[in-house]
């Protein structure tokens, strides 16, 4: 466990000294801020209900693309530089390495999300928003962040090329975000397939959080998806050991 936290700390520190983390965060805050600004104007002009629902939904879409940029280097760089073998021959277990890297990526994700709390704060200053859906939306954002980070980490474990890892991560996220719902629009799809794909569809689960409800189905989905992806990542690293 100590190894895991040491890895997480080291990774986070290396994130915080790399310019890419700041660039990605700044770009994320710029487009999220713009989007929130537009929705704020809409709410003021049309006296619509003050909400961060649409901004949070937009932020998740941004993270579908941004999360792999954070995670692409986590394992791919170690592989490219040959340090992964060194780590794996040390007393560090594969799962400790994977969890350490995951927590580092997730911590950076949290640091990126943290400044966006200014958005609901703005609504509180100039209006009377319902904080229930705001908290549930942010909880959804955190749980989805965990899934997206885990997808990125898995992609990073598959290759030593960071660009390839990023592309694979984006593809994986898009698959969960967009494509899982597509067969539901095909009337010839079997109802069972549609039901299974609906359970896998990220957007379906996000909607509940955004509307102001906490549903065990959505929470279990996010946690189990994260656990499964991290497990597969660990198995891939283990495979390197017995393939050698």
């Amino acid at each position: 466990m100590r190894n895991m936290f040491a890895i997480a700390k080291r990774e986070l520190q290396s994130f915080l000294v790399s310019p890419i983390a700041y660039l990605v965060t700044a770009a994320f805050l710029l487009i999220s801020g713009l989007y929130f600004w537009f929705t704020l104007n809409w709410m003021v002009t049309y006296r619509d209900i003050p909400t961060v629902r649409y901004t949070v939904e937009f932020m998740v879409v941004v993270f579908v693309f941004a999360a792999p940029l954070i995670t692409m280097r986590l394992l791919a760089q170690e592989r490219r530089m040959g340090t992964l073998e060194l780590v794996l021959t040390s007393p560090v277990k594969e799962w400790e390495l994977v969890m350490g890297k995951f927590f580092a990526g997730f911590a950076l994700y949290l640091l990126m999300v943290l400044p966006t709390l200014l958005y609901p704060l703005t609504l509180e200053i100039f209006g009377n928003p319902d904080w229930g859906p705001i908290w549930s939306s942010y909880l959804g954002l955190l749980l989805f962040g965990a899934v997206l980070t885990a997808v990125g980490l898995l992609a990073s474990a598959l290759t030593e090329n960071q660009i390839v890892a990023a592309v694979l991560g984006v593809a994986g996220n898009l698959l969960l975000w967009f494509f899982a719902g597509i067969p539901t629009y095909d009337p010839s799809s079997s109802p069972r397939l549609i039901q299974i794909l609906k359970i896998l569809d990220l957007r379906q689960h996000l909607d509940t959080f955004l509307s102001g409800a906490l549903d065990t189905r959505d929470i279990i989905y996010c946690l189990s998806m994260t656990a499964f992806l991290l497990f597969v990542t660990t198995r891939i690293l283990e495979a390197r050991r017995w393939r050698a």
Binding site: G132, G212, A213, D215, A227, F228
Partner: peptide, 19 residues
């Protein structure tokens, strides 16, 4: 995990956090 999700789907529990 499939069983956990299946059970959650069959016996859902939802908390309404709106004011």
């Amino acid at each position: 995990l499939g069983v956990a999700n299946f059970l959650a789907d069959r016996h859902p529990y939802r908390i309404d956090v709106t004011a």
